[in-house]
């Protein structure tokens, strides 16, 4: 598990965004920014989800597919007038193909300050082993 193809992002994020552009009335979907890191015994996935609360986050792993959906919502007080808006209410969606050899029962997830951090431990067989040269 050393190649940069270990985790293959699907193209869904972009397709969803195109759909959203075609139908402006619908709530938009965007792929959140993420980073994937690897150590000898685990993969680390960091997903940036500003404005997302724990209750609005769904995460599932089925087979090798990881699917994350999260809703970003904020109730603007009625008396606030927008002068300039760059953020927005939309749905985050991330669909990743995980490599084989992960201990799925031991996946650890933590959402803090709008960042989801996932630790995906490798199973013993998939871990990199140092070979002693005699």
């Amino acid at each position: 598990m050393t190649s940069d193809k270990t985790v293959i992002p699907t193209r869904e994020g972009r397709l969803s965004r195109n759909r959203a552009a075609d139908a402006p009335a619908a709530r938009a979907t965007v792929a959140p920014h993420y980073e994937i890191k690897e150590s000898d015994d685990a993969l680390g996935l960091e997903v940036f989800l500003p404005g997302v609360k724990r209750d609005n986050l769904n995460l599932s792993v089925e087979g090798r597919e990881l699917l994350l959906t999260a809703g970003r919502s904020w109730n603007r007080p009625a008396e606030w007038t927008a002068v300039w808006v760059e953020t927005g209410d939309f749905d985050y969606r991330l669909h990743l193909m995980l490599p084989e050899g992960l201990e799925q029962e031991k996946i650890h997830a933590e959402l803090k300050n709008g960042v989801l951090r996932l630790t995906l431990p490798k199973s013993a067989g998939a871990q990199k082993r140092k070979i002693k040269i005699e």
Partner: peptide, 24 residues
């Protein structure tokens, strides 16, 4: 841990890609 992939130019602190859809 070493970085093996990311889908944004640097750190992901902004959520939008100005060239796609909703981030306008």
């Amino acid at each position: 841990m070493r970085l093996i992939e990311r889908n944004h130019p640097n750190t992901g602190l902004t959520h939008g890609d100005p060239f796609f859809g909703t981030a306008w």
